[in-house]
Each structure stands twice: as structure tokens, then as C-alpha cells.
Design a protein around this nucleic acid. Structure first.
Length: 288
DNA sequence: ACTTTGACCTGTGCGC
DNA sequence: TGCGCACAGGTCAAAG
């Protein structure tokens, strides 16, 4: 479930190994992931020095000494890990990309990309300013450009349920199914409320939308601090699980008691746009 | 212009 | 033990 906190966890784990390292060899164990690898992908990576690793939304961006940027998206089940070259290693069934590195301080290691469902992908860009994947992304929820006022502007014309609107990466970048469910619960907003119902006549955010913007930040910050969430196979780069899944209030808790102190409701599951929404019908209200 | 649906893949867990 | 089905973190193209 790589959503923003998990991708951030991966980037932070990789940074000490990657930044300052030189890419020695690249091995692709298949011709594609979700998409084909870009032209001359191996040649454009080999021999490059890695200058920085950054995250934008759920994308990982690796800046190379030649000026190009290596972009990757983890899809649903993608993950990176670092293995020590001193121990024998045989790639597993889903280890699709192997990158050997030399580092002046950390020595030699291998970066592995695994992705059972292959919904992830990689690409290469001379200039991230022209990168099609980043062109239409909304604001970073943890950045200064994310505000309730900005959310209200995007919500005002949309009758789609707020659940769907928050999953729209053009409106806010980096949220996925889990953290949207958690944020809506914290804000006591039903996932079925039309997005435009959270906007006043004059276009300003309702108080509920103001709360929602705040709790989105809160839940993401808490999840990052916990090292992300681990469901199925997500692991950080050291192979360890995250811990935030133990803090879920609604996600995956269908049939369990609502955690809100003064609520005696039971968590329910509904399907919206083909995705499960977990919520408390008792305390998450229909209108803003 | 907005919204929904299906497609892309593999793995897991459940009921029978 | 096996089979079929439902479901899983995301995005995109196509259709309504």
C-alpha cells in the first residue's frame, strides 16, 4: 500500500545508500513492469552518480549526475530494498530490477525492485518540469500550498463523493484508499458527502472542510513517524514492517466498534467507485 | 467538463 | 486438498 507515507518511508530508507553512490550495473529481469522500460534505460543509468532522492506525491525521483531524473512509481505492490553484496543473493520471482552500487562511505550494495502485481513503473526524464506524470498533480498535503481554501476551489464544482475527490491526484497528491478513509473518520465526514457540500456559497471552505484539511496532515505525519503501514508485503528498505496499521481507526475494521470516545457505532464497509470505504455510519455525518 | 467503469497483474484467504 | 470467487496499497483509457 504505498501511499504517501510509505513512499516517504522508502525514500528516507534509501537516501543514505543512494545519495553519493555510483550506479555500476543495471539488470532488468523482464522487459516491462506496468509499462515498458524507456529507451536505453540501462545505458542511461549505468555510470551515473546519484545526487539526490526525492518524493513527489507517490513518485520517487532520483537525480543523476548527467542531469536526467529516474522516476519510479510503486503501484500497489512495488518495493525497494537494499541488500549487502557480501552475502550470496539470488533474485526472487518478483525481483524485476537489480542495480549494483558503489558508495565511498557505505561500500558496495545492490538495490532491488520487487513488484508482484507489476502495477509499478519506471521512466527517465531529461527535465522533470516536462514530466507528464507530474504535470497535473495537485498540491503536496504536507506542503505550504495545501490549504482548505484551495481544496474548496476544487470541490466547488464537483458533486462526486468526497471520498472519490480526495483520491483524485489532481486535487490533492499522495492520498490513497487507507489515508482517505482515516482522514474522513477523523473529520467526522461521511465518505458519501458530495464534495461541493463542503464549500460555502461564497466559495470558502466550510468549517468541516477546514478540519478535514488539518486531519489529513495529521494522519500523514503520524503515519510517516510510524514508518508507514504494513499490509500484505510492504516493507521498508531494511525489510522491516511499518507500524501505523496498528493505529487504523476504520480501515479494515468492518464490524468492529467505532473508536470515537462518545460514539457507540460499528464500522461499516461500502464500495465507492469500485474501492472499499470504511466508515462509521453513526458519527460520520452526511452533510457538512 | 465531470464521473464511472473496466483493465492492467498476481497473491491470499475464504467458503464449499 | 482443491476449486472458484472476492478482494487488495494505484492509475489510466474509454465510455457515459
Amino acid at each position: 500500500m504505498p501511499e504517501l507515507p510509505e513512499v516517504e518511508t522508502v525514500c528516507r530508507g534509501l537516501a543514505p545508500h543512494l545519495e553519493g553512490a555510483r550506479i555500476e550495473t543495471v539488470t532488468l529481469n523482464r522487459p516491462d513492469l506496468r509499462f515498458k522500460f524507456p529507451d536505453r534505460f540501462i545505458d542511461r543509468l549505468q555510470g551515473q552518480e546519484i545526487q539526490a532522492i526525492n518524493r513527489r506525491a507517490k513518485y520517487i525521483l532520483v537525480d543523476l549526475s548527467g542531469g536526467e531524473t529516474w522516476l519510479s512509481h510503486l503501484g500497489m505492490t512495488g518495493n525497494y530494498r537494499i541488500v549487502d553484496n557480501s552475502s550470496p543473493f539470488a533474485p526472487g520471482k518478483h525481483d524485476h530490477v537489480e542495480v549494483t552500487l558503489t558508495h565511498p562511505r557505505h561500500g558496495d550494495s545492490t538495490l532491488l525492485y520487487s513488484d508482484p502485481r507489476r502495477f509499478g513503473f519506471m521512466d527517465m526524464f531529461a527535465d522533470v518540469a516536462t514530466c507528464k506524470y507530474l504535470a497535473n498533480l495537485g498540491p503536496e498535503p504536507l506542503g505550504n500550498s495545501f490549504t482548505a481554501t484551495g481544496l474548496a476551489q476544487n470541490f466547488s464544482s464537483r458533486r462526486t463523493p468526497v471520498k472519490s475527490a480526495l483520491l483524485d491526484q489532481r486535487i490533492i497528491a499522495g492520498l490513497g484508499n487507507i489515508y482517505v478513509c482515516e482522514a474522513l473518520w477523523r473529520a467526522s465526514i461521511s465518505p458519501m458527502v458530495p464534495a461541493c457540500n463542503l464549500v460555502n456559497e461564497d466559495g470558502s471552505p466550510t468549517p468541516e472542510l477546514g478540519v478535514l484539511a488539518n486531519v489529513i496532515r495529521d494522519v500523514l505525519i503520524e503515519a510517516i513517524a510510524a514508518g508507514g503501514s504494513t499490509l500484505q508485503d510492504f516493507r521498508n528498505t531494511k525489510g522491516n514492517a511499518g507500524y501505523f496499521q496498528h493505529s487504523f481507526d476504520v480501515y479494515g475494521r468492518e464490524g468492529h466498534d467505532c473508536h470515537r470516545a462518545d460514539c457507540s457505532g460499528t464500522i461499516a464497509r461500502i464500495v465507492q467507485s469500485g474501492r472499499s470505504s470504511f466508515w462509521c455510519p453513526t458519527c460520520q455525518v452526511e452533510t457538512g
